[in-house]
């Protein structure tokens, strides 16, 4: 089974947001794999391996990013986790929007013919939450977004996805090929099931760390460098940023000494109770 994982680099979400000349100041940013995409890589690996023995019986995980030269680092991180092969399509963040990314991914998929696409539900820089669903529409494939659990039966013809929706969890089964976008809880210990990992097995919480061996191996794994034009795409974004601003700061609050004072203030000052 071949799984394609599109991934994006994002500025480290823990860093303070600064604005310079009407856009986000990224001059001092350190870059990481979009957390949801890291979870998608973890999901893909768990789908293919026997969690207990660590053995993988065939299958391939291909990671792809559309981004600048530096984004190769994030692809290497995914290779170090255990992905097999990477593709970087050269593009500057500013020149990309969801439609361009989708067009490139669609062309990559036409070439790679994966059985399944697993990706993050959203990139935590733009928080758009669009690419997976748009891609599924373009491909005419079914989609299962916001996956908190996945279960791949032995015949690998379908996948059962526990989706986090407002009302709870919806269990949706889609035939393959299809697009799955993952939510946070997909990396909890028993969220990913295949037919080879024993039911009793539990993963550690969160995505795996790359081992030293993994990091060494990643250096030798293939990383193809491509251009947008290789996929018939042009950087012609239809969504353009006109400006950014910081949210108005909340006015400074106050510490109150005890609960009776709190309740008094809630009643008299905030009129909230």
């Amino acid at each position: 089974m071949k799984i394609l994982v599109p991934l994006k680099r994002v500025p480290d979400p823990e860093l303070k947001t600064k604005i310079k000349d009407g856009s986000i100041d990224l001059s001092g940013a350190s870059w990481v794999v979009n957390p949801f995409d890291e979870y998608a890589v973890e999901t893909a690996l768990r789908l293919l391996e026997n969690g207990e023995s660590g053995a993988r019986d065939g299958g391939e995980v291909v990671v792809v990013t559309i981004g600048p030269a530096d984004a190769a680092q994030q692809l290497r991180s995914a290779l170090a986790m255990g992905a097999d092969r990477a593709i970087r399509v050269d593009g500057e963040d500013k020149a990309l929007d969801s439609r361009t990314v989708v067009a490139v991914l669609q062309a990559v998929i036409a070439e790679e013919k994966p059985d399944l696409v697993v990706m993050g539900k959203q990139a935590v820089d733009g928080d758009a939450n669009q690419v997976g669903q748009m891609l599924a529409a373009k491909l005419g494939w079914p989609q299962a977004t916001f996956a908190a659990s996945v279960e791949l039966p032995a015949d690998k013809a379908t996948i059962l996805v526990g989706r986090e929706v407002d009302a709870g969890v919806e269990y949706k089964r889609i035939p393959l090929p299809g697009v799955v976008t993952v939510d946070l809880r997909i990396v909890s210990p028993k969220a990913v099931k295949n037919s080879v990992t024993p039911d009793s097995f539990a993963y550690g919480d969160g995505p795996r760390y790359a081992s030293l061996k993994g990091i060494m191996a990643a250096k030798k794994k293939p990383l193809a460098e491509k251009k947008l034009s290789d996929y018939g795409a042009t950087p012609a974004p239809v969504i353009v940023e006109k400006g950014v601003e910081l949210p108005p700061p909340r006015k400074a609050g106050q510490k109150v000494d005890d609960i009776p004072t709190l309740v008094k203030k809630l009643v008299e000052e905030a009129k909230a109770v």
Partner: peptide, 11 residues
């Protein structure tokens, strides 16, 4: 955007 740490105007 950025978990609500900024507001972007997009066209």
């Amino acid at each position: 955007i950025l978990a609500g740490n900024a507001y972007s105007t997009v066209e």
